[in-house]
Design a protein around this nucleic acid. Structure first.
Ligand SMILES: [Mn+2]
Ligand SMILES: [Mn+2]
Ligand SMILES: [Zn+2]
Ligand SMILES: [Zn+2]
Lengths: 144, 144
DNA sequence: GTATCATTGAAATTGAAATTCAATAACGAT
DNA sequence: ATCGTTATTGAATTTCAATTTCAATGATAC
């Protein structure tokens, strides 16, 4: 019962907001959980269509917003790229290397960077909410 | 002759591209150099209008693109915010703390972070082109 | 069963940014 | 200084992602 937790989290969330679970929302959730890629709305829409061709673009958008609200999904805005989404539930915080040529995305995490960021924020009297670190470059395959 | 260098850089750049210096471009350059803020196009347009009310929005856009090409300006895309521009000539690389409440922008630079970023990129066989680090939080004034 | 109200898909709208186009003007050649 | 080529301009339009509107539908509580 792989989907159980995530499904419950969404169910809980919509209940709290006085909203409802619908077949369409279940399909979008399943489609989203079914890929480990950093999907954009268009790609997810295509995956959703395979399961139920009657579901609209607007519903995919609206459901993704719900998934972000309950932290099942995280919105990613890379420079000059359209918005993408990744799994957030059971996934640890990380930053990204992005290939400017082929679009390849590599995840990384570095405790030291995180630590220094906190220190910098503290020194400037900022209470940190979140941060965005994106390293753009050319991957090894694209350099050949 | 404060503007001399910057003006020459733009002049050089347009000549190289077979383009031309125009009064409008000079006005946009002057207006841009005249503020140390991280301006968006709208704000710069207002500053430009004070000097010459006949200059259009499109020209401000087009000139900013030129200024970025010759590295007099740098485009900044903060999460969920519209595009801003800052001086690049004679300014060292830095990252930003952004207040989510009042929009205040604080610049910082940390050698150690830069260094680790390079190391991470190297470990993943990426050749770094650039990076974007933005820390979002609440500034001290907004916490009172 | 009925009233209530969230949800849907399709279409329209928004907002930032880029582009089109005919008139104008920069600038190198003469 | 004049000319001819061709880049530039302002106004309007277009693009594109993202959001919103709206009438019809459907789920839930009583
Ligand atoms: Mn990721
Ligand atoms: Mn800055
Ligand atoms: Zn690549
Ligand atoms: Zn603030």
């Amino acid at each position: 019962m792989r989907i159980k937790d995530e499904y419950s989290i969404l169910k809980e969330h919509v209940k709290e907001k006085g909203l409802r679970i619908t077949p369409q929302r279940e399909v979008v959730l399943d489609a989203f959980l079914g890929t480990e890629r950093h999907v954009d709305v268009e790609s997810l829409y295509i995956l959703v269509k395979k399961r139920d061709a009657s579901i609209s673009f607007a519903t995919v958008y609206r459901t993704l917003k719900l998934l972000c609200e309950c932290e099942l999904a995280k919105e990613l805005k890379f420079e000059g790229k359209i918005t993408r989404y990744e799994h957030k539930y059971n996934h640890k915080h990380h930053d990204h290397l992005v290939c400017a040529q082929c679009g390849k995305i590599v995840e990384f995490h570095n405790d030291k960077i995180e630590e220094i960021q906190d220190k910098v924020a503290r020194e400037n009297n900022f209470k940190v909410l979140n941060h965005h670190l994106e390293i753009n470059g050319i991957c090894s395959s694209c350099r050949n």
